[in-house]
Amino acid sequence: MRSEEIKVCVLRIEGTNCEDEMYQAFRELGASPEKVHLKQLLGKCPADMKRELDDYNILALPGGFSAGDYVRAGAIFAARIKSELSKDIRSFVESERPVLGVCNGFQILVELGLLPAFEGTMSEHPEAALYTNISGRFECTPTILKHESRGKCIFTKRIEKGRMMLVPCAHAEGKLMFAKEKEEKLLAKLEENDQIVFRYVDEDGEYAGYPWCPNGSLSNIAGICNPAGNVMGMMPHPERVVHRYTHPDFTRTAADVNGAGDGKAIFESVIESVKRKA
Protein backbone atom coordinates (compact mmCIF):
# COMPACT_ATOMS: atom_id res chain seq x y z
CA MET A 1 0.00 0.00 0.00
CA ARG A 2 1.36 3.38 -0.94
CA SER A 3 1.12 6.29 1.48
CA GLU A 4 -1.38 8.18 -0.65
CA GLU A 5 -3.73 5.20 -0.56
CA ILE A 6 -4.01 5.54 3.20
CA LYS A 7 -7.27 7.34 3.88
CA VAL A 8 -7.49 9.21 7.14
CA CYS A 9 -10.82 10.32 8.56
CA VAL A 10 -10.24 13.51 10.57
CA LEU A 11 -13.54 13.57 12.42
CA ARG A 12 -15.12 16.78 13.62
CA ILE A 13 -18.25 18.43 14.95
CA GLU A 14 -18.89 22.01 16.01
CA GLY A 15 -16.12 23.14 18.33
CA THR A 16 -13.54 20.67 17.07
CA ASN A 17 -10.83 23.14 16.21
CA CYS A 18 -7.50 21.38 15.65
CA GLU A 19 -8.60 19.57 12.48
CA ASP A 20 -6.60 21.74 10.08
CA GLU A 21 -3.24 20.94 11.66
CA MET A 22 -4.18 17.28 12.14
CA TYR A 23 -5.13 17.12 8.46
CA GLN A 24 -1.90 18.86 7.54
CA ALA A 25 0.27 16.47 9.56
CA PHE A 26 -1.09 13.46 7.68
CA ARG A 27 -1.00 15.27 4.36
CA GLU A 28 2.67 16.16 4.72
CA LEU A 29 3.51 12.51 5.27
CA GLY A 30 1.86 11.64 1.99
CA ALA A 31 -1.36 10.10 3.32
CA SER A 32 -4.81 11.16 2.11
CA PRO A 33 -6.62 12.80 5.00
CA GLU A 34 -10.15 14.17 4.80
CA LYS A 35 -11.97 16.40 7.27
CA VAL A 36 -15.29 14.67 7.89
CA HIS A 37 -18.21 16.00 9.92
CA LEU A 38 -19.86 13.39 12.14
CA LYS A 39 -23.15 14.03 10.31
CA GLN A 40 -21.49 12.86 7.10
CA LEU A 41 -20.88 9.46 8.71
CA LEU A 42 -24.44 9.38 10.03
CA GLY A 43 -25.92 10.18 6.63
CA LYS A 44 -27.51 13.40 7.85
CA CYS A 45 -26.37 15.51 4.91
CA PRO A 46 -26.84 15.92 1.15
CA ALA A 47 -26.14 12.71 -0.74
CA ASP A 48 -22.87 13.87 -2.28
CA MET A 49 -21.40 14.48 1.17
CA LYS A 50 -22.13 11.08 2.73
CA ARG A 51 -19.17 9.03 3.97
CA GLU A 52 -18.64 5.55 5.44
CA LEU A 53 -16.23 5.04 8.33
CA ASP A 54 -15.32 1.65 6.94
CA ASP A 55 -13.76 3.30 3.87
CA TYR A 56 -10.95 4.80 5.95
CA ASN A 57 -7.72 3.27 7.20
CA ILE A 58 -7.12 5.62 10.12
CA LEU A 59 -9.50 7.56 12.35
CA ALA A 60 -8.20 10.72 13.98
CA LEU A 61 -10.03 12.73 16.62
CA PRO A 62 -8.48 16.19 16.80
CA GLY A 63 -8.43 18.61 19.71
CA GLY A 64 -10.78 21.45 20.45
CA PHE A 65 -13.88 22.03 22.51
CA SER A 66 -16.37 19.76 20.80
CA ALA A 67 -19.89 21.06 21.39
CA GLY A 68 -18.31 23.54 23.80
CA ASP A 69 -17.29 20.93 26.36
CA TYR A 70 -19.92 22.46 28.56
CA VAL A 71 -20.88 19.18 30.25
CA ARG A 72 -17.56 17.43 30.61
CA ALA A 73 -14.76 17.54 28.08
CA GLY A 74 -15.56 15.23 25.19
CA ALA A 75 -18.81 13.96 26.72
CA ILE A 76 -21.21 15.32 24.11
CA PHE A 77 -19.21 14.23 21.07
CA ALA A 78 -18.76 10.80 22.66
CA ALA A 79 -22.47 10.52 23.37
CA ARG A 80 -23.34 11.37 19.78
CA ILE A 81 -20.89 8.78 18.45
CA LYS A 82 -22.06 6.18 20.92
CA SER A 83 -25.74 6.58 20.17
CA GLU A 84 -25.45 6.25 16.41
CA LEU A 85 -22.03 5.02 15.38
CA SER A 86 -21.15 2.51 18.08
CA LYS A 87 -21.24 -0.52 15.84
CA ASP A 88 -19.14 1.02 13.09
CA ILE A 89 -16.51 2.30 15.47
CA ARG A 90 -16.30 -0.99 17.29
CA SER A 91 -15.71 -2.92 14.10
CA PHE A 92 -13.19 -0.28 12.99
CA VAL A 93 -11.16 -0.85 16.18
CA GLU A 94 -11.58 -4.61 16.09
CA SER A 95 -10.24 -4.72 12.55
CA GLU A 96 -7.05 -3.36 14.15
CA ARG A 97 -7.22 -0.05 12.35
CA PRO A 98 -5.56 2.84 14.21
CA VAL A 99 -7.53 5.44 16.14
CA LEU A 100 -5.73 8.54 17.39
CA GLY A 101 -7.19 11.02 19.85
CA VAL A 102 -5.34 14.19 20.74
CA CYS A 103 -6.36 16.48 23.60
CA ASN A 104 -10.15 16.71 23.25
CA GLY A 105 -9.84 13.60 21.08
CA PHE A 106 -8.25 11.76 24.03
CA GLN A 107 -11.05 12.95 26.28
CA ILE A 108 -13.58 11.64 23.75
CA LEU A 109 -11.87 8.23 23.54
CA VAL A 110 -12.02 7.92 27.34
CA GLU A 111 -15.66 9.00 27.41
CA LEU A 112 -16.43 6.48 24.65
CA GLY A 113 -14.78 3.67 26.59
CA LEU A 114 -12.22 3.01 23.83
CA LEU A 115 -9.52 3.90 26.36
CA PRO A 116 -8.20 2.44 28.55
CA ALA A 117 -10.57 -0.44 27.51
CA PHE A 118 -9.24 -2.93 30.02
CA GLU A 119 -11.99 -5.38 29.16
CA GLY A 120 -12.82 -5.79 25.48
CA THR A 121 -12.86 -3.20 22.74
CA MET A 122 -15.10 -0.59 24.26
CA SER A 123 -16.27 -0.42 27.83
CA GLU A 124 -19.89 0.42 28.48
CA HIS A 125 -19.01 3.18 30.92
CA PRO A 126 -15.89 5.34 31.08
CA GLU A 127 -13.21 3.61 33.21
CA ALA A 128 -11.10 6.71 33.68
CA ALA A 129 -11.51 10.47 33.58
CA LEU A 130 -9.51 13.42 32.38
CA TYR A 131 -10.17 15.84 35.15
CA THR A 132 -9.56 19.58 35.68
CA ASN A 133 -5.86 20.47 35.87
CA ILE A 134 -4.48 20.84 39.39
CA SER A 135 -3.83 24.52 38.72
CA GLY A 136 -7.56 24.90 38.05
CA ARG A 137 -6.60 26.71 34.84
CA PHE A 138 -6.19 26.26 31.15
CA GLU A 139 -2.49 25.56 30.58
CA CYS A 140 -0.90 26.37 27.23
CA THR A 141 2.72 25.42 27.68
CA PRO A 142 5.52 23.36 26.16
CA THR A 143 5.94 19.98 27.86
CA ILE A 144 8.61 17.30 27.65
CA LEU A 145 7.42 13.72 27.21
CA LYS A 146 9.28 10.51 27.79
CA HIS A 147 8.35 7.59 25.58
CA GLU A 148 7.42 4.71 27.87
CA SER A 149 5.88 2.09 25.57
CA ARG A 150 7.65 -1.25 25.49
CA GLY A 151 6.48 -1.84 21.94
CA LYS A 152 2.74 -2.41 22.07
CA CYS A 153 1.60 0.94 20.76
CA ILE A 154 1.52 1.17 16.97
CA PHE A 155 1.78 4.98 17.08
CA THR A 156 5.29 4.92 18.51
CA LYS A 157 6.98 2.03 16.76
CA ARG A 158 9.59 4.36 15.31
CA ILE A 159 10.38 5.96 18.65
CA GLU A 160 12.91 4.26 20.92
CA LYS A 161 11.88 3.68 24.50
CA GLY A 162 13.05 6.39 26.85
CA ARG A 163 13.35 9.04 24.17
CA MET A 164 12.44 12.56 25.33
CA MET A 165 10.22 14.64 23.07
CA LEU A 166 9.07 18.22 23.23
CA VAL A 167 5.32 18.36 22.56
CA PRO A 168 3.17 21.31 23.65
CA CYS A 169 0.01 21.11 25.75
CA ALA A 170 -3.06 23.32 25.74
CA HIS A 171 -5.95 22.15 27.87
CA ALA A 172 -7.92 22.71 31.04
CA GLU A 173 -8.87 19.09 31.69
CA GLY A 174 -5.96 16.69 31.30
CA LYS A 175 -5.45 15.06 34.66
CA LEU A 176 -5.84 11.31 34.16
CA MET A 177 -7.68 9.75 37.09
CA PHE A 178 -9.20 6.46 38.13
CA ALA A 179 -11.70 5.93 40.90
CA LYS A 180 -9.64 6.34 44.08
CA GLU A 181 -10.24 2.83 45.37
CA LYS A 182 -9.12 1.25 42.09
CA GLU A 183 -6.30 3.63 41.32
CA GLU A 184 -3.38 1.51 42.39
CA LYS A 185 -4.70 -1.63 40.78
CA LEU A 186 -5.57 0.02 37.47
CA LEU A 187 -2.28 1.87 37.27
CA ALA A 188 -0.50 -1.45 37.73
CA LYS A 189 -2.70 -2.89 35.02
CA LEU A 190 -1.80 -0.09 32.61
CA GLU A 191 1.86 -0.82 33.27
CA GLU A 192 1.43 -4.54 32.96
CA ASN A 193 -0.50 -4.25 29.68
CA ASP A 194 2.11 -1.87 28.25
CA GLN A 195 -0.57 0.79 27.86
CA ILE A 196 1.39 3.78 29.13
CA VAL A 197 2.80 5.51 26.08
CA PHE A 198 4.02 8.88 27.36
CA ARG A 199 4.82 10.50 30.69
CA TYR A 200 5.66 14.13 31.41
CA VAL A 201 9.23 14.72 32.62
CA ASP A 202 11.51 17.67 33.38
CA GLU A 203 14.49 18.64 31.25
CA ASP A 204 16.63 16.00 32.96
CA GLY A 205 14.12 13.25 32.20
CA GLU A 206 12.85 13.00 35.79
CA TYR A 207 9.20 12.70 36.77
CA ALA A 208 8.79 16.12 38.37
CA GLY A 209 5.14 17.05 38.78
CA TYR A 210 3.80 20.57 38.10
CA PRO A 211 4.68 22.63 36.08
CA TRP A 212 6.52 19.98 34.04
CA CYS A 213 3.39 17.86 34.31
CA PRO A 214 0.93 20.63 33.51
CA ASN A 215 -2.19 18.94 34.85
CA GLY A 216 -1.12 16.82 37.84
CA SER A 217 -1.96 13.62 35.99
CA LEU A 218 -1.75 10.26 37.77
CA SER A 219 1.83 9.01 37.63
CA ASN A 220 2.67 11.90 35.25
CA ILE A 221 0.83 10.08 32.45
CA ALA A 222 0.41 12.07 29.22
CA GLY A 223 -0.82 9.39 26.84
CA ILE A 224 -2.09 5.81 26.87
CA CYS A 225 -3.13 3.14 24.37
CA ASN A 226 -5.60 0.27 24.51
CA PRO A 227 -4.37 -3.23 25.32
CA ALA A 228 -4.19 -4.03 21.60
CA GLY A 229 -2.07 -0.95 20.93
CA ASN A 230 -4.12 0.44 18.02
CA VAL A 231 -6.05 3.13 19.90
CA MET A 232 -3.97 5.91 21.43
CA GLY A 233 -4.97 9.06 23.24
CA MET A 234 -2.67 11.82 24.44
CA MET A 235 -3.18 15.29 25.88
CA PRO A 236 -0.16 17.03 24.23
CA HIS A 237 -0.39 18.02 20.57
CA PRO A 238 2.08 16.17 18.30
CA GLU A 239 0.48 17.78 15.23
CA ARG A 240 1.77 21.15 16.43
CA VAL A 241 5.39 19.96 16.28
CA VAL A 242 5.73 18.15 12.98
CA HIS A 243 8.52 20.57 12.06
CA ARG A 244 11.48 21.74 14.10
CA TYR A 245 10.56 25.37 13.47
CA THR A 246 7.41 25.14 15.53
CA HIS A 247 9.40 23.99 18.56
CA PRO A 248 9.38 26.77 21.14
CA ASP A 249 13.16 26.70 21.46
CA PHE A 250 14.17 26.28 17.82
CA THR A 251 16.06 29.59 17.79
CA ARG A 252 18.37 28.43 20.58
CA THR A 253 19.21 24.81 19.88
CA ALA A 254 21.70 23.33 17.47
CA ALA A 255 19.07 21.10 15.84
CA ASP A 256 18.58 21.61 12.10
CA VAL A 257 15.72 24.04 11.60
CA ASN A 258 14.67 22.08 8.51
CA GLY A 259 14.54 18.83 10.47
CA ALA A 260 11.61 16.92 11.85
CA GLY A 261 9.75 18.15 14.87
CA ASP A 262 9.33 15.74 17.76
CA GLY A 263 5.71 14.99 16.92
CA LYS A 264 6.40 13.73 13.41
CA ALA A 265 7.53 10.24 14.45
CA ILE A 266 4.03 9.49 15.76
CA PHE A 267 2.48 10.10 12.35
CA GLU A 268 5.31 8.25 10.60
CA SER A 269 4.86 5.26 12.90
CA VAL A 270 1.17 4.89 12.28
CA ILE A 271 1.47 5.33 8.53
CA GLU A 272 4.23 2.76 8.41
CA SER A 273 2.24 0.29 10.46
CA VAL A 274 -0.76 0.64 8.15
CA LYS A 275 1.49 0.12 5.14
CA ARG A 276 3.14 -2.90 6.64
CA LYS A 277 -0.14 -4.51 7.50
CA ALA A 278 -1.63 -4.02 4.08
Partner: peptide
Protein backbone atom coordinates in the same frame (compact mmCIF):
# COMPACT_ATOMS: atom_id res chain seq x y z
CA UNK B 1 -0.67 30.46 29.60
CA UNK B 2 -4.44 30.66 29.78
CA UNK B 3 -4.69 31.60 26.13
CA UNK B 4 -4.10 28.89 23.57
CA UNK B 5 -1.47 30.67 21.49
CA UNK B 6 -0.56 27.63 19.40
CA UNK B 7 -3.84 26.22 18.11
CA UNK B 8 -3.75 25.92 14.28
CA UNK B 9 -0.13 24.80 14.73
Amino acid sequence: KQYDHEVRG
